[in-house]
Amino acid sequence: MANSIEIKNVSKSYGNTVALKDISLSVNSGEIFGLIGPDGAGKTTLIRILATLLLPDKGSAVMTNYDVVKDYKKVRSSVGYMPGKFSLYQDLTIEENMQLYATMFGTTVEENYHLVKDIYSQIEPFKKRRAGKLSGGMKQKLALSCSLIHKPEVLLLDEPTTGVDPVSRKELWEMLKKLKNDGVTVFVSTPYMDEASLCDRIALIQAGEILGIDTPESIVNSFDKTLLSINSSDKYKLLNDIRSYEHCNSAFPFGESLHYTDKRTSFDIPQIYEYLRNCGNTNVEIAVIKPAIEDCFMNLMVGE
């Protein structure tokens, strides 16, 4: 399958701050690719380079066969971009924003209506309302409609689910899935590790560097240790005690329990149980669990 995005050795610094260090990755045509990492990892910088809004210091990026520097005009007509911050005209109505975007790309809302129908029809009843007066979820639907109206092959979305409540988050992912089915390549960044499973492939990014690129399943399968989930009546005591255990490799709070890895390759769970009981922990529960993407991310961060 052809690659929609091909990034080779891209680096970018702002003064002394290194935002991206030698990033290389490729995105297949028609997949949902997730760029997953915390604030400050370099996600926005990378997306802006792909959207031709920022020049890389080194390296190259090709979008739908066009170079983001030399052929930036062609890239712009074949790529849709939804920035993290709502950037439409607040004092234009829904309808006017749509017409503006369509006109800028030399098309009309009518011509490409079928592309945005599923999303736009949900806000169309309010088309005379100004963008500034819309709720968060509606703004997002409008921004998405505007970024799709010129029939892009690739859609770049910069943290579309940040600060959005779980219901709207769920709706957004449902919309992305539909776009994928329509043949659009989706490149989406997110700080939420739990959204990894909604992507076909993901890149984990931290401090300007890629920690891993693969399908979510393969990343989880590459976790090379036995992961235990441990509970007790007093989380804080449990955490301090398990960290003092001579075989403790890592122990992190993880919601209601804590996640533990051992230094040894093989070990007995009852032994750990005994140790915790002897330290005075009560209602201790230990279970072997399958790692989540967040466990993998932390494991890779520690390994760096």
Partner: peptide, 16 residues
């Protein structure tokens, strides 16, 4: 929101 997973846990440890 938005902090890396290890720092976030250090934050929760301060809360505990």
């Amino acid at each position: 929101g938005g902090v890396d997973p290890i720092t976030r846990r250090q934050f929760w440890e301060l809360i505990y």
